[in-house]
Amino acid sequence: MVTKISEESLLDMLDAAGYGISYWAVEAVIDEEARTYTVTPEEHPTEDRAPEPIVIPFDSIIGAFWTISDPDAEVKHLSRLTQSYVNQAVVDGEDGDIDAGHIDAHAADQIIQVAAFGEVVFG
């Protein structure tokens, strides 16, 4: 049974996210020391104002992953494919870690959006 997401698996997901979020974000920065992922959107997703960088703690990204893995989770606009990939990462995990190889750019994008906004707001 998977009980955690290792630092290596998390960084693999963030690497994929860098490709996945490129249609709505102009910059994404990983700060391993601060354990944050800072994303600057091209536009604010819900308001008519200039975007500001969004600092997402690694723990929020991990929490979003586990929320998506819950079959009863009600996350607006979440794709079933993303939920399938997340669940497969859990099922195929070994040594108490997920198999991050199942998290492609699209799934990583949605994980980041859920961590940042509580729902999928782009795409």
Results as ranks from 00 to 15, higher is better:
residue 9 S to A: 15
residue 13 M to L: 08
residue 99 D to L: 12
residue 107 A to K: 04
residue 79 S to A: 02
residue 15 D to Y: 13
residue 101 G to T: 09
residue 87 N to Y: 00
residue 4 K to R: 15
residue 33 E to P: 04
residue 19 Y to K: 14
residue 41 P to N: 08
residue 24 W to C: 09
residue 72 D to S: 03
residue 119 E to A: 10
residue 113 Q to D: 10
residue 70 D to W: 04
residue 72 D to R: 04
residue 122 F to D: 06
residue 22 S to V: 03
residue 75 V to S: 14
residue 116 A to K: 04
residue 8 E to L: 12
residue 7 E to M: 15
residue 70 D to N: 15
residue 88 Q to K: 13
residue 68 I to D: 03
residue 97 D to C: 11
residue 81 L to T: 01
residue 113 Q to W: 10
residue 67 T to F: 01
residue 2 V to K: 10
residue 19 Y to L: 14
residue 58 F to C: 06
residue 71 P to V: 11
residue 76 K to W: 11
residue 90 V to T: 03
residue 109 D to R: 12
residue 94 E to S: 11
residue 43 E to R: 12
residue 70 D to Q: 09
residue 113 Q to V: 08
residue 120 V to Q: 07
residue 118 G to R: 00
residue 103 I to V: 04
residue 81 L to R: 07
residue 103 I to C: 04
residue 64 A to M: 03
residue 95 D to W: 09
residue 65 F to V: 06
residue 42 E to I: 11
residue 65 F to T: 09
residue 21 I to S: 04
residue 45 P to H: 07
residue 54 I to R: 09
residue 7 E to G: 06
residue 57 P to S: 05
residue 57 P to M: 02
residue 106 H to T: 05
residue 43 E to Y: 13
residue 96 G to M: 14
residue 33 E to L: 07
residue 84 S to Q: 00
residue 83 Q to E: 02
residue 14 L to Y: 12
residue 36 T to C: 02
residue 36 T to R: 05
residue 13 M to C: 11
residue 91 V to N: 09
residue 37 Y to Q: 03
residue 109 D to V: 05
residue 21 I to R: 10
residue 83 Q to K: 09
residue 102 H to G: 03
residue 87 N to F: 00
residue 48 D to Y: 07
residue 69 S to P: 00
residue 11 L to Q: 10
residue 27 E to T: 02
residue 68 I to G: 01
residue 119 E to N: 10
residue 85 Y to T: 04
residue 11 L to N: 11
residue 4 K to S: 15
residue 78 L to I: 05
residue 22 S to G: 02
residue 52 E to I: 05
residue 27 E to G: 06
residue 3 T to L: 03
residue 75 V to I: 15
residue 82 T to A: 13
residue 5 I to L: 15
residue 5 I to C: 13
residue 70 D to E: 10
residue 10 L to C: 11
residue 76 K to V: 10
residue 15 D to H: 12
residue 86 V to S: 08
residue 75 V to E: 11
residue 119 E to D: 13
residue 51 P to V: 04
residue 68 I to P: 06
residue 123 G to D: 06
residue 9 S to P: 13
residue 52 E to Y: 01
residue 34 A to L: 10
residue 85 Y to F: 13
residue 48 D to F: 09
residue 38 T to M: 09
residue 95 D to C: 02
residue 70 D to G: 00
residue 92 D to F: 12
residue 56 I to S: 08
